[in-house]
């Protein structure tokens, strides 16, 4: 994939290569059982445990390599066959941006109305929010690296707002000067 968008400023913004993403909906027990069948665990409320991203009380997003999405989907569907549940491949609907650099929290704080202090937004915490005017799910993979899932149709907009927020001359320094 050579047409992946990227930008370097206060942070590096990079569109990630295709990733397998499956929406799984159902009750906690149903989701736990289905995830177990493909070797994953249900994350705690509001958390991301690497592969599985908590979305709402009855929804998680399962991430897997794009090549194996069909296989994982089939496994999830057969595990939930007799239950009230939904497993759906949404890989092509969404895209993932990776935001890396010391100013990651700061750049996100300019775009999303969420509390990005580390006590409120630790590594692994998932927040579904908005990035300027578009919906997004964001979490910190590590202290200075975030991943944001957004709808592919508005990827250009997302890159645009991230670029303005990460403009080299637009540093605020809030998180650098306030160790919280």
């Amino acid at each position: 994939m050579s047409n992946l968008r990227s930008f370097e400023g206060l942070v590096t913004v990079r569109e990630m290569p295709l990733r397998g993403m499956i929406t799984l909906r159902g009750d906690t027990e149903v989701m736990t059982a289905a995830l177990k069948s493909v070797g994953f665990e249900l994350p705690e409320r509001g958390m991301c445990n690497g592969a599985v991203v908590w979305m709402s009380p009855d929804e998680v997003l399962v991430q897997c390599p794009h090549e194996s999405v069909g296989q994982t989907l089939a496994a999830l569907q057969s595990a939930t066959q007799s239950m009230h549940a939904l497993a759906l491949d949404v890989s092509d609907t969404r895209t993932v941006f990776e935001i890396t650099g010391a100013a990651t929290r700061e750049v996100l704080a300019k775009l999303a109305p969420i509390d990005l202090r580390s006590a409120q937004f630790p590594v692994g915490k998932v927040r579904r929010t908005r990035l300027a005017q578009i919906p997004c799910a964001v979490w910190l993979r590590e202290e200075s690296a975030a991943e944001a899932i957004i709808f592919r149709s508005v990827a250009e907009y997302a890159l645009g707002v991230l670029q303005s927020a990460a403009h080299p001359q637009a540093a605020v320094g809030y998180f650098a000067s306030n160790k919280m």
Partner: peptide, 11 residues
């Protein structure tokens, strides 16, 4: 009360 997040009215 469903996701436990404090949200401002723009969210």
């Amino acid at each position: 009360p469903n996701c436990g997040e404090a949200k401002d009215e723009t969210e």
